[in-house]
């Protein structure tokens, strides 16, 4: 006789088997899907025709999705550089540099992204004559995410015990060698989970760039919706499209966390 309670209950000392969790997630998604089609199919007149009329625009979705990947990818790289640089500036012995970095982090983290997009695009980018929306969008998104990454990186660096730095000094490492061999790898291990979260946020936040007319994924879905008046069929692919980008990040982060695991 199969122990049925094992499918539902996790005893304290046990590890949850990942296949079982996957199974549960599958079941829940299936149930939720059935429920949704039941409810919305009734109220919104879900029909074969709905999907067909949206399908005509699949090229628009596809292009928007690719543009979202492009914008997010470039922003991810640029914001990582900003984040690392600002994190080091936050710990710099040069006080003015420290203050600039701190001001940047506080201003960016203290204002909504939407306000930053509007201000930086319509005021600053127009002011300096930056016409290319996509370039402007990437820069704005990088500046935004860079501030959060800087705080994450700083916390990771500060979590490395002082005894480790002392050991590195005793060996005769230069400051750069200490960073490269001792601080960076240990800090990276510490910050992997929040880093993955921030990268996923960056992808999701890129949707706000639709407000300045960048034809990324969200704007594409909005356009399809206004052309077809099919709300569910326009926005369900939108949600799934973002999940298809963010879930792998969270998965990769979990794998890396396992690989870098060590006890102190």
């Amino acid at each position: 006789m199969i122990n049925l309670s094992g499918l539902f209950w996790l005893r304290r000392e046990e590890q949850s088997p990942s296949w079982l969790q996957g199974l549960w997630m599958g079941v829940i998604v299936l149930l939720a899907g059935l429920l949704c089609t039941g409810v919305m199919g009734g109220t919104m007149g879900l029909s074969q025709g709905g999907w067909a009329s949206v399908w005509k625009y699949h090229g628009v979705f596809w292009q928007g999705w690719l543009l979202t990947i492009l914008i997010s990818g470039v922003s991810l790289a640029v914001s990582s550089l900003i984040g690392l640089g600002v994190a080091l500036a936050l710990r710099s012995p040069v006080l003015p540099l420290r203050s600039v970095a701190l001001l940047y982090v506080e201003v960016i983290r203290g204002t909504p992204l939407l306000a930053q997009i509007l201000f930086l695009f319509y005021v600053v980018a127009n002011g300096v004559g930056l016409q290319d929306r996509i370039v402007a969008g990437v820069l704005i998104l990088s500046l935004f995410s860079g501030a959060y990454l800087a705080e994450i990186v700083r916390s990771g660096i500060e979590a490395v015990p002082a005894t480790q730095i002392e050991s590195a000094r005793a060996i005769g490492f230069t400051d750069f060698q200490t960073f490269r061999y001792v601080i960076a790898p240990q800090a990276l291990r510490q910050i992997l989970p929040p880093l993955a979260g921030q990268f996923a946020s960056l992808i999701k936040d890129s949707s706000l760039l639709s407000i300045i007319g960048i034809g990324e994924f969200t704007l594409a879905a909005q356009q399809v919706n206004s052309a077809t008046y099919r709300t569910l069929e326009s926005y369900l692919p939108l949600a799934i499209g973002y999940l298809a980008l963010t879930l792998p990040i969270s998965l990769i982060s979990k794998i890396l966390e396992k690989r870098f695991r060590y006890e102190t």
């Binding site: 005894t163 480790q164 050991s167 061999y181 001792v182 790898p185 240990q186 870098f260 060590y262």
Partner: peptide
């Protein structure tokens, strides 16, 4: 005293 090996 605390060895200070690099744990990674």
């Amino acid at each position: 005293q605390a060895f200070n090996l690099f744990p990674h």
